[in-house]
């Protein structure tokens, strides 16, 4: 289980996260929506310590830290318990698809290379890229790169996979295959925290949708309730805008 208590992050004078409280159950799929610049990505980045939070308490499985006192070891431990999928894939350009997935197992988990490669091949199979094992990122399409990015996160066997707008950099033709893979993971009850503008995905897949604005959680609930009967006027306003822009699904 994951628990975030009173998480605060400031950039200079701007308070980007203003006391976030959040609990995520094992196997829960949560989608975070909200206007740009409201701290959604920062929330994910703080959970992974890519940003150092200014206050708060973080519980990730058996790890429980006051973020202001987190040691180097705590930070590495937190990162091992959270896997990250980046908007721009961020694959290691000098490594093949197989090596990208196996890298963490070899370097961080200290698995023997053969075992790590065997696991990476299983994952490539699951993400439908078994034939691309030896391809370098430069020769893969955006959709394939992001699937490898997700594969790399799967390999980490973290408590949760954090998806930071995983389809926002993709050409429209590749969005569907990435969402399909995410749906497949959701069906396997992989714990996921997803920041996305794909409202269709939120509606169909999420157990819970969180609406964030101004560094706070404004409203949350099951998608059926949040999309059909939003309580807060800010949620209503946001949904009206995005659903008008993308009336499909």
């Amino acid at each position: 289980m994951i628990k975030v208590a009173n998480l605060v992050k400031r950039f200079g004078d701007a308070t980007v996260l203003d006391g976030i409280d959040l609990e995520i159950d094992r196997g829960e799929i949560i989608v975070v929506i909200g206007p740009s610049g409201t701290g959604k990505s920062t929330l994910l980045r703080c959970l992974n310590f890519l940003e150092r939070p200014d206050a708060g308490r973080l519980t990730l499985g058996d790890l429980d830290v006051d973020v202001t006192r987190a040691s180097r070891a705590d930070i590495l431990a937190a990162r091992r318990r959270t896997a990250f999928v980046f908007q721009n894939y961020a694959l290691f350009a000098n490594k093949t698809a197989l090596e990208n997935i196996a890298e963490g197992l070899i370097v961080v988990n200290r698995w023997p290379k053969a075992r790590a490669h065997a696991r990476a091949r299983e994952i490539l199979e699951r993400i439908g890229l078994a034939d691309k094992a030896d391809a370098y990122p430069a020769s893969l399409s955006g959709g394939q790169q992001q699937r490898v990015g997700i594969g790399r996160a799967m390999a980490a066997q973290a408590e949760v996979i954090l998806f930071d707008e995983p389809t926002s950099s993709l050409d429209p033709e590749w969005v569907e295959e990435v969402l399909a893979l995410m749906k497949q993971l959701a069906a396997e009850r992989q714990t996921m925290l997803v920041v996305t503008h794909e409202m269709g995905f939120a509606r169909d897949v999420a157990d819970r949708v969180i609406f964030m604005e101004g560094g706070r959680i404004v409203e949350q609930g099951p998608p059926s309730r949040l999309f059909n009967a939003p309580e807060d006027p800010r949620t209503r306003d946001f949904l009206r805008k995005v659903l008008a822009a993308a009336p499909s699904s």
């Binding site: 890519l50 590495l76 000098n94 980490a156």
Partner: peptide, 25 residues
Amino acid sequence: DRSQTEAALSIGMTNAQLMRRIVLP
């Protein structure tokens, strides 16, 4: 690319591992 540094950190690599395995090559 800075994002590869973040990716390496996100999976729990140390700075030294990140330098040796990702950045320097």
